[in-house]
Design a protein around this nucleic acid. Structure first.
Length: 456
DNA sequence: GGAACTCGCCAC
DNA sequence: AAACGTGGCGAGTTCC
C-alpha cells in the first residue's frame, strides 16, 4: 500500500524536472512589446495626474512641512510619520517593528484624509507598471520572456520563479489582471491553455492524514466542504452555492477553511470573514454587511440569531474551530499531533515523494511542508511526463510554464483536443498509477484562451 | 556605492 | 502556550 519513494527517486524527479523546466524556459512566452510600451506610458500619465492631486492636498502641506526638499510621495516611512506623529492620528494597525502601518487595509480605515485614496490608487498603478510591464520589457529577448523555474530554493521542495517571476501575475484584481495579462501572447497562430489540478493540496493532505470525512468530501462531487462551513459559520443550514450564497461560501473558504489548514486560529479567522462580509468591529446594527440570502443583510441575520457584536462573533468562530478539529476532521487533527511528535523525536520529516526536511521547524511548518511539497511534486511529475510525450510525438505545442498546481501551454489549435486528452490522462490516470500512495481521485480543469487572445 | 534591511503586495 | 504555510520583487532606507 505504502511503496513510497526513495531519496534516489526524489533526486530523479529533481533532475528530470530541471531538464523539462529548462526546455520551457528556453521556449519562453511571447510578449506584446508595443502594448507594454503604450500601456506603461498610459499608466505613467495616470500616476502623474494622481501625484498632482496629492500635491494639492492638505496632507501634502503637512508632509512637505516636515520633509522639505526631501519630501517623497513614494515613501511609506515618511507617510507613517506624517499621519501618526505629525497629524496625531492613532495608527489603526502597526507593523512587526511597531511602526504605524501604511498598508491598504490600514489607510482605508482612516477617515477625513481624501489624499490617501489617491495614494492607494497610485500604488496599485505603480505596482502594475513597475513589477510587471517594466519587468516584461526589461527581461524580454526578441519579444519573448524566459522566466526561470527553480527547484533548489524552497524549503518545502516546491518551485520558485524569477527574472521575471511568472508565478505572481495578477489574477484577483480585475483591472490589474486585464492590464498585465494582456501583455502575454501565444506564438502567432497559436493559443494559450492552463491546466490546473483542482484542490490538489487538500487531496494530498488526505493521502497523509486519511481522514474519512475529508476523503468523503473529495470522493463525493455533490458534497461541498466550503459550503458546509459557510452554513455553519453563517447559521444558515440551507445556504446555496449560487446567488448571494456564493460570496458567503468564498468567505468561509478563504477566511476560515484554508487559513485553518495553514495553522491559523479563530481570532484571525473572525477578522478575515468580517472583512469579506463587510461586517464592522464593535456592536452590530441592522443593515450592515453584504446581502443575506435570508433577506436583508448579514448583520440582520446574525442579530436575529443572537449574535449582536463582533466580540460575540469571535466566540462563535472559536466554537466552530473547536468543532472543526475536535469533531469534523478529528482524524486529520490526530494525524497532525502524531506527525509533529514523530518530527520531534526524529528531527526530520519524510515526504511520500522521497524528500526529507530536517532542521528546526515550527509545528505549522512540520504539518504544512509535506503537503505543499508533495502536491507540487504531483505537478512536476505531470510536467515531466507531458514534456516527454510532447517531444517523442513531435508536437508543435509547447510547455511554457508552471504555477505550483498548473501547467501553461502554447498550443497549436489543430492539436488542442489531443493535447487536452493526453494532459487529462497523464494528470488523473498515469500519475496515480505511478504513485500508489495517492489514495484519492485527482482532477484537473483546463482553461482555453483563443487564437491571438490574451491569457485572461 | 553596494549589501542588508523593512514594508507592501502579487501569486499558490 | 501559541497563533497563517511557500515564494519574488520594487522602493525606500540604513549601514558599512
Amino acid at each position: 500500500m505504502k511503496s513510497t519513494a526513495t531519496t534516489m527517486d526524489a533526486y530523479q524527479l529533481l533532475h528530470k524536472g530541471a531538464l523539462a523546466l529548462a526546455r520551457a524556459e528556453r521556449q519562453g512566452i511571447r510578449i506584446d512589446m508595443e502594448y507594454c510600451e503604450k500601456k506603461k506610458a498610459h499608466l505613467t500619465r495616470k500616476i502623474e495626474y494622481l501625484t498632482k492631486k496629492v500635491e494639492a492636498s492638505p496632507l501634502y502641506s503637512a508632509w512637505s512641512g516636515l520633509y522639505h526638499n526631501k519630501t517623497n510621495i513614494d515613501s511609506n516611512p515618511q507617510l507613517s510619520r506624517v499621519l501618526y506623529k505629525s497629524m496625531g492620528i492613532t495608527p489603526p494597525k502597526v507593523t512587526g517593528n511597531g511602526e504605524g502601518s501604511t498598508d491598504e487595509d490600514t489607510l482605508g480605515k482612516i477617515e477625513g484624509v481624501p489624499a490617501l485614496e489617491w495614494i492607494l490608487e497610485m500604488r496599485k498603478l505603480r505596482k502594475i507598471r513597475d513589477t510587471y510591464l517594466e519587468a516584461f520589457i526589461r527581461e524580454q529577448h526578441d519579444g519573448y520572456i524566459h522566466p526561470f523555474f527553480n527547484l533548489h530554493t524552497v524549503r518545502t521542495y516546491r518551485s520558485s520563479s524569477d527574472r521575471p517571476n511568472f508565478q505572481n501575475i495578477p489574477k484577483r484584481d480585475k483591472e490589474a489582471k486585464r492590464i498585465t495579462r494582456r501583455a502575454l501572447l501565444p506564438r502567432p497562430g497559436h493559443m494559450l491553455i492552463e491546466a490546473d489540478y483542482s484542490g490538489i493540496e487538500v487531496s494530498i493532505s488526505a493521502c497523509y492524514h486519511k481522514d474519512p470525512v475529508m476523503i468523503k468530501y473529495i470522493n463525493d462531487p455533490s458534497s461541498d466542504m466550503h459550503l458546509d462551513m459557510a452554513r455553519q459559520i453563517y447559521l444558515m443550514p440551507d445556504l446555496l452555492k449560487e446567488g448571494p450564497g456564493k460570496l458567503l461560501r468564498q468567505s468561509a473558504k478563504n477566511g476560515f477553511v484554508f487559513p485553518q489548514f495553514y495553522g491559523d486560529y479563530y481570532a484571525n479567522n473572525a477578522a478575515g470573514i468580517c472583512e469579506w462580509a463587510k461586517l464592522p468591529s464593535g456592536r452590530w446594527r441592522p443593515g450592515q454587511g453584504v446581502a443575506s440570502p435570508t433577506g436583508g443583510t448579514v448583520s440582520d441575520h446574525f442579530i436575529s440569531k443572537g449574535i449582536t457584536s463582533y466580540d460575540q462573533f469571535v466566540e462563535h468562530i472559536k466554537a466552530i474551530e473547536a468543532d472543526f478539529w475536535g469533531r469534523r476532521f478529528q482524524v486529520y487533527s490526530k494525524w497532525k499531533e502524531s506527525w509533529v511528535a514523530q518530527y520531534q523525536k526524529r528531527g526530520y520529516l519524510d515526504m511520500y515523494t522521497g524528500f526529507r526536511c530536517s532542521g528546526i521547524m515550527k509545528k505549522n511548518e512540520v504539518v504544512n511542508y509535506p503537503i505543499q511539497g508533495s502536491a507540487f511534486h504531483c505537478l512536476l511529475w505531470s510536467f515531466i511526463r507531458l514534456d516527454e510525450i510532447m517531444r517523442k510525438e513531435n508536437w508543435d505545442t509547447r510547455l511554457i510554464g508552471q504555477i505550483h498546481d498548473s501547467i501553461i501551454m502554447d498550443v497549436n489549435p489543430d492539436e488542442l483536443d489531443y493535447v487536452k486528452q493526453v494532459t487529462t490522462r497523464v494528470a488523473t490516470e498515469e500519475l496515480p498509477a505511478a504513485w500508489k500512495w495517492i489514495n484519492v481521485p485527482l482532477s484537473i480543469d483546463i482553461d482555453e484562451y483563443g487564437v491571438d487572445q490574451p491569457w485572461i
